[in-house]
Design a protein around this nucleic acid. Structure first.
Lengths: 192, 192
DNA sequence: CCCTCACCCTAGCATCGCTAGAAATGCTGG
DNA sequence: CCAGCATTTCTAGCGATGCTAGGGTGAGGG
């Protein structure tokens, strides 16, 4: 039965190719440019092949989002691990988060702006998403302050970061003041 | 030349009808349901009429967004004016903002989530948008704290509110803790 | 009263996400 | 090694989208 194994391997490989290509195309030209036709052409298969892997475009976006969540969690853990002291850790976390959003705008859109058909804040939330939130909470819990639920504090801090990320990216906030806003955010929100 | 005046009046009236209908439809069934065909049918004209008023769907969304910005500014001013003391004012502002986002999700989407083709944080930013930001700043400047630029502080506070609004609406944050998050936000960010 | 012109609608284009059914590919048993 | 079968893949097409060209109609002015 090695034939089946090979086929499964090839299928999995092709699925990775689809997700990677969608992500690449979105990063290059925006999600609007990610049409099923263009995507199919890039992977050198016809459109229906996409639907043998994913239920539809939404699921493809969702797959990119999950990938992004895993990377974001890793980025945050790497940044905070390299920092000394609570304040440096929170600052590093904020910079890592905003840096990720600015550096991979299409992936960030897939995670939070577009409908990837993912559940959140619920029982059936996919693991990478829960883990990304966990990565935030690991560092932020030490800055929550006395008598404040770490989960609630993490939600608030996350919301602030998310707001900064999206408003900056949409041109609503001047990007040159990002660092000052980050500093103010850490100063005020975190109890150090 | 009273004929022309009447025609202009009718045109302006029809334009208001288009915007109001788009908003209504979006609020009832979401922006996805706002197609040029459905919109045209509801106002009892053909599609090309829409394009004699607006360059395209984006501009219609933009018109709804501007309307929303004016209402949001009014809501904020009304709420803060009725509050006594700095803390009550900031709390009222936050509640008014989040209440607006929750109460008019489609309008909020038009303002910040969708592409309405509006400029921000620039010279040619439409007046209602600048005024909404001004409404925030009027109340928040007294809570910025010593040595902190009120504009920067307002941007940060706004970003936090925006993050809370969008993440809550997208189901990323449990809605039942909204009030607690708001209280924590005010406690931490505002210097009272 | 008729002409003219501005307005509006019918019809259609290109593209979108998605799917049914035909064609082709490649595995398996004789 | 070949025939037959099953799986996979492609061609073609559906309904719907935003947007536009061009013809027809009705109201206003001489």
């Amino acid at each position: 039965m090695s034939v089946r194994e090979r086929k499964e391997r090839e299928r999995a490989e092709r699925e990775r190719l689809i997700v990677a290509t969608a992500r690449e195309l979105a990063e290059q030209q925006g999600w609007d440019a990610v049409t099923t036709r263009r995507l199919a052409e890039r992977i050198e298969y016809s459109q229906p092949v996409l639907y043998s892997h994913f239920r539809g475009k939404r699921e493809i976006i969702g797959a990119v989002a999950l990938q992004g969540a895993a990377e974001l969690a890793a980025d945050i853990r790497a940044a905070t691990a390299a920092a000394d002291g609570p304040r440096a850790r929170v600052t590093a976390l904020a910079r890592a988060y905003l840096g990720f959003a600015a550096g991979h705008p299409a992936v960030y859109d897939a995670m939070f702006q577009l409908d990837g058909g993912l559940a959140f804040a619920r029982e059936d939330t996919p693991e990478p998403l829960k883990d990304a939130f966990a990565a935030l909470q690991e560092t932020l819990r030490e800055s929550a302050g006395a008598g404040v639920d770490p989960g609630l504090f993490t939600e608030l801090f996350w919301a602030a970061l998310h707001g900064l990320a999206t408003l900056t990216r949409a041109g609503r906030l001047p990007p040159e003041d990002t660092e000052r806003r980050t500093a103010l955010l850490v100063d005020r929100l975190a109890v150090l």
